[in-house]
Nucleic acid binder design. Structure first.
Length: 754
DNA sequence: GAAGTGATGTTTTTT
DNA sequence: ACATCACTTC
């Protein structure tokens, strides 16, 4: 062991690493060696005598945590990296909650509901309460509940808050509070926590502090590090404060982030946290990492130019000494199919010309649905690729079905699992029977399992009673073997004796065989889990531990670096990654920036930060592409190029023809011959026609029709009062107060009722 | 209760 | 275009 790692750091990085006592804030621009600082800081702590198990590092993805541990191991050796508590907020808290669950009235083997489960619970509640599903959209309600949780508003507090109740009336969702309350109650009686609960309940645990449990964690986590702090929400920050603030605390907390890369506001993240941190820890040392070690000059410059269009940000200027590099290429095509082909062509050419491998190249897009044209083109070019995101393995129907049985064995109160498998394969327990069970459960506030366990004399038909008894018997039989059999054997038994495997095996269609294969893959995965050496955080090989370990996995955690494949992913998913060559595709108005984000300045700024993240993933070569037309909603739509393209000066762009020749084969898309038109600064058509809203009474409004103090109604935010009108003609910005929530709205795009 | 059929809305991003 | 959902018929 030596201090040589300190020599690998620049001055500011070194200070950020060696300032180990007291609060520290590191503002780290893209490619500025943030991960290096974090890992060396931990290594340094350990070398200074801090026990690795007294360090808690909270990251944004499992992958980041894993890599951090590995890098600590390679830096100081001895495998100490594995003893550091490093993980996502969600996974670390899930682990703690598993120990402490009973203190807050949850079973230790609580289930984690994923988004699908949550939506299903909500749609049941909405249906059973005879609420209009169009008024109470599952997605909308889910988002609002989520936002309640990360603002620490309990159902009770919600009901008591007049402003919120008012707001619901204006939003024409007066029964929202009822849904929220019912949802929380159902989760609790099912012994289930959703993703937000992992944070919310963690806060409750520390706040209510039964048995003085907080002392244990104050004692345990002496040094706290938080990565990607710009993407934490209010609740996460409150938990951090709970862990750091106590009498005589040394406030050993280090946050690392970059306000310019905050891209999760839609999920409650707030840059306010960075400002609040400075306010809450006045003696915090602040280090700004501004040297970019990743990208060449043109790319860094373009990024700076783009982000300059956002008004509110922490002042910094990213620079590089990597040399000018290649200017950014712009690719214009006529159709989305052609976009796929041209990008695939360019990939082939880059591979030869620059000696790149597939894994050096990434295609980044705004929405996952865009992957298709690229997949097809890459396949026909025989280029290996891997698509990240979208539906993950564990979210596939057949996998969730199989897991349903396993979940039920561990926690029979898990109602989503129960609903999923009670009639799968068909055992004559139909929808009306399940509804009836649910009603009885609801009115007695007991889990559905308890109702079906005691199905006699509840007024069910003899046939239904019998079927249910058979099902209960089946599950109980599995449960009995929970103690004697390991997870793999149990899963195999459940799959066979439930008839699920047989049912899947009988489907001889291609998709059916695929599903069977997936379930086999799941079983193999469980086998690997059972046979593998226990990792620090897995204290046993039980089914419960297995389920917990996969609940928070994402696609990217099954990442295989050794594979030489082109990466396809959303820009969000690309955060923290870098590639020698990057294609940012679909650079069109209404796509990137998304049409969903055109309502407010804040949303548009977030889109721009997203674009900033996208271009700063590139080390050497950056290509931005857009298509003049694209299939959307099953029909062709014509697009204008993204406004973001205009924000990059021609100095940093290749203004010549971006690519020598169109690919051979295709005739269809080159009929017009416009596909390889000469390219200058992309032009946008003069007017932007706002997409027709579903409700025609909401429409674009001219500024002359509006004045300060006027009541208006926005198609999404409801009724509000105009506070001010600013900006040049045709570009007015309204500040509108929507019952306590102030929004800045771009009149150009807004759909309003006066 | 099961299976088949037509209608409808749905798409931003993710732990 | 696609999937989900409500509605029909057996």
């Amino acid at each position: 062991m030596s201090n040589t790692y300190l020599d690998q750091l620049n001055d500011i990085q070194r200070q950020a690493v060696t300032t180990i006592n007291g609060p520290v804030m590191v503002i780290a621009g893209p490619g500025s060696g943030k991960t290096r600082v974090l890992t060396y800081r931990i290594a340094h702590l350990i070398e200074q005598g801090v026990n690795p198990w007294n360090i808690l590092a909270l990251t944004f993805t499992n992958k980041a945590a894993r890599e951090m541990k590995e890098r600590i191991n390679t830096t100081i050796g001895g495998g100490v990296g594995s003893s550091v508590w490093a993980g996502t907020f969600h996974s670390v808290f899930a682990r703690i909650l598993r120990y402490e669950a009973e203190l807050i009235g949850y079973p230790a083997n609580f289930t984690i509901y994923d988004t699908q489960d949550t939506k299903s619970v909500l749609s049941n509640i909405i249906r059973e309460n005879n609420l209009e599903p169009k008024v109470y959209s599952v997605n909308g309600v889910r988002a609002r509940i989520s936002s309640c949780k990360y603002n620490l508003i309990s159902p009770k507090a919600y009901t008591e808050n007049n402003e919120l109740i008012q707001e619901d009336h204006q939003r024409r969702q007066p029964h929202f509070q009822k849904i929220y309350k019912a949802y929380m109650a159902r989760c609790r009686r099912a012994g289930a926590m959703d993703f937000d609960d992992l944070l919310y309940q963690m806060f409750i645990l520390l706040h209510k502090n039964p048995n003085d449990v907080i002392k244990k964690y104050h004692h345990k986590f002496r040094y706290l590090l938080v990565d990607e702090f710009q993407d934490t929400n209010f609740l996460q920050y409150q938990i951090v404060r709970k862990l750091v603030n106590y009498t005589n605390s040394p406030h050993n907390v280090c946050i690392v982030g970059d306000d310019a890369q905050s891209i999760y506001a839609f999920r409650g993240a707030t840059i306010e946290n960075i400002l609040n941190f400075q306010r809450d820890y006045k003696n915090a040392k602040i280090f700004k990492l501004e040297q970019n070690y990743r990208s060449t000059h043109h790319i860094v410059q373009a990024a700076n130019e783009v982000i300059l269009n956002n008004k509110r940000q922490i002042q910094k200027k990213i620079w590089t000494d990597k040399g000018k590099g290649e200017p950014i290429k712009i690719l214009q095509t006529v159709t989305d199919t052609e976009e796929g082909k041209r990008v695939a062509d360019m990939i082939l050419e880059q591979k030869t010309r620059y000696h790149l491998q597939n894994k050096d190249i990434a295609i980044l897009y705004r929405t996952n649905a865009q992957s298709r044209s690229f997949e097809e083109a890459l396949r026909s070019h025989r280029i290996k690729y891997r698509v990240y995101g979208g539906l993950s393995f564990y979210q596939r129907k057949e996998i969730k079905d199989m897991l349903g049985y396993l979940r039920l064995i561990v926690n029979p109160n898990d109602e989503e699992a129960l609903r999923r498998v009670i009639n799968l394969p068909k055992r004559a327990i139909g929808k009306s029977t399940v509804d009836k069970v649910s009603k009885i459960a609801d009115s007695n506030n007991v889990p559905m399992w308890m109702v079906i366990e005691n199905i006699d004399s509840q007024g069910f038909s003899a046939r239904a009673t019998n079927s249910i008894k058979g099902f209960v018997k089946l599950i109980k039989k599995f449960q009995k073997q929970h103690v004697t059999k390991d997870a793999y054997e149990l899963a195999k038994i459940a799959g066979t004796e439930s008839g699920l495997l047989k049912m899947l095996g009988e489907d001889k269609t291609i998709e059916g065989m695929n599903r069977m294969e997936n379930v086999q893959g799941l079983l193999d995965g469980i086998k690997i889990f059972v046979d593998s050496e226990p990792v620090a955080e897995e204290e046993d090989k039980s089914l419960a531990t297995y389920l917990q370990s996969i609940a928070l996995l994402t696609d990217q955690d099954t990442d295989d670096k050794s594979d030489d494949k082109v990466t396809l992913m959303s820009v969000h998913a690309a955060k923290g990654l870098e590639f020698p060559s990057v294609f940012v595709v679909g650079m069109e108005e209404d796509l990137f920036p998304s049409f969903m984000s055109k309502n407010t300045i804040d949303e548009m700024d977030e889109e721009r930060r997203l674009f900033y993240v996208a271009i700063t993933r590139a080390e050497l070569y950056l290509t931005l592409s857009y298509s003049k037309s694209r299939y959307r909603f099953g029909q062709v739509r014509y697009n204008e190029s993204s406004r973001f393209l205009e924000e990059i000066s021609t100095e940093n762009m290749d203004v010549s023809i971006p690519f020598s020749k169109s690919s051979g084969g295709s005739t269809r898309s080159s009929v017009s011959g416009a596909g390889i038109r000469k390219y200058g600064t992309p032009m946008r058509k003069a007017k932007t026609a706002p997409a027709a809203s579903s409700d025609p009474s909401f429409k674009s409004t001219s500024a002359t029709d509006l004045k300060v103090g006027q009541q208006i109604e926005h198609f999404r935010f409801g009724k509000g009062k105009i506070q001010s009108i600013e900006g040049a003609k045709g570009n007015e910005v309204l500040t509108v107060n929507f019952s306590g929530m102030e929004k800045r709205i771009m009149l150009k795009f807004a759909k309003l009722k006066v």
